[in-house]
Simulated assay, not measured.
Amino acid sequence: MLVPEFAIRTAAPGDDRFLAALDRNTWSTLHAVQPRPEPGTPFFDERHRPEDYLVAVGEGEVVGGAALLGYVRVAPPTPLAVTAHVRQIQGLAVAEAARRLGIARALLRAAVDRARAEGAVRITLRVLGHNAPARALYASEGFAVEGVLPGEIFLDGAYVDDVLMGRSLGP
């Protein structure tokens, strides 16, 4: 089912249970290094605040009856002043039924726009080496591989590279 239009907005506290369900439903060892979230686990906590997330919201006919189609988390990489000029993508997910509609790309672009608006001059992310679709998306949006930590992650019985990507937010 196609979503004719969607909007991107900052997450609100009331999005918690919908985002928690989306996170559980999209969980995969292709991209997740944490165990699958248990039902009833809150999505937001003191480290994961609604204002750190941008959400894609369906307008008109909505995929699978769920208004929240995806999210991206964009936040400072550390609480240190020396990295205040950097933002980091710390999660990106799109509902399976809403994939291939440009939602992930739109969320990524919105994250870049937000980072610029916050005064950041760089944006970075980490992606698992075996996640070819995500790596291709990031590369197509100007992210370059800036480092690889070979075998850094032991996931599902195999060692996986941790790939560091980034891009300048200059003009």
Rank of each mutant, 00 (worst) to 15 (best):
R126G: 06
L54N: 05
V62Y: 10
R114I: 00
R116E: 07
M1E: 06
V74K: 03
D16V: 05
V57Y: 03
Q90G: 04
S28Y: 09
Q90W: 06
A120N: 09
G129E: 01
P79Q: 05
V112F: 00
T26I: 03
F44I: 11
R105N: 08
R36G: 00
F18S: 15
E61M: 03
A132H: 08
R73S: 05
V121C: 05
E59W: 07
V112T: 02
L54W: 05
A11F: 05
T26P: 11
V121R: 12
Y71M: 09
T78A: 10
R99Q: 15
A132F: 03
H85P: 04
N131H: 05
N131E: 01
A21C: 07
A81P: 08
I8E: 01
P4W: 07
G91C: 14
A98Q: 01
S28H: 12
R47K: 10
L22V: 09
V121Q: 01
L30P: 00
D52W: 12
P4D: 13
I89A: 01
P42R: 15
V82K: 15
L30Y: 01
V72R: 10
A67S: 14
L107C: 07
T78L: 11
T83S: 13
V82S: 15
T29D: 03
V55C: 10
G119W: 05
A98E: 00
E96L: 08
L108Y: 01
R100H: 13
G129I: 03
R17T: 13
G58Y: 13
D16F: 01
F43Y: 15
I123N: 00
D15E: 10
A81V: 13
P39A: 12
D113I: 00
L2Q: 14
R99V: 07
A20D: 12
R100N: 13
V72G: 07
R24K: 09
L2H: 13
G60W: 08
I8Y: 04
G64S: 11
V82Y: 15
T83H: 11
D16S: 03
R99M: 07
V94I: 01
A110S: 09
V112C: 09
A67F: 03
T78C: 06
E51M: 07
T78M: 11
E59V: 12
T26C: 11
A32M: 13
L54F: 12
V57G: 06
R17G: 02
N131S: 00
Y53T: 04
V57D: 09
L101T: 01
A132K: 03
G129W: 03
T124R: 02
E96Q: 13
A12M: 14
N131G: 00
A21F: 00
V3W: 01
A106F: 07
A56V: 13
R105H: 08
H31M: 08
L19H: 06
R73I: 08
L92I: 15
G129V: 06
G58S: 04
T10V: 10
F6V: 11
A11E: 04
A66Y: 05
A21W: 02
R49W: 08
S28Q: 09
Q90T: 08
Q34A: 14
Q34V: 12
D45L: 11
A98N: 03
A97Q: 13
D23F: 07
A95M: 10
A7P: 02
D16M: 08
A12E: 15
E96W: 09
A111K: 02
A21H: 06
E59P: 00
A104V: 06
L80P: 02
L54A: 05
G119S: 08
G129F: 01
V33G: 04
A132T: 15
A66E: 14
T83E: 06
Y53M: 04
A75V: 14
A117I: 04
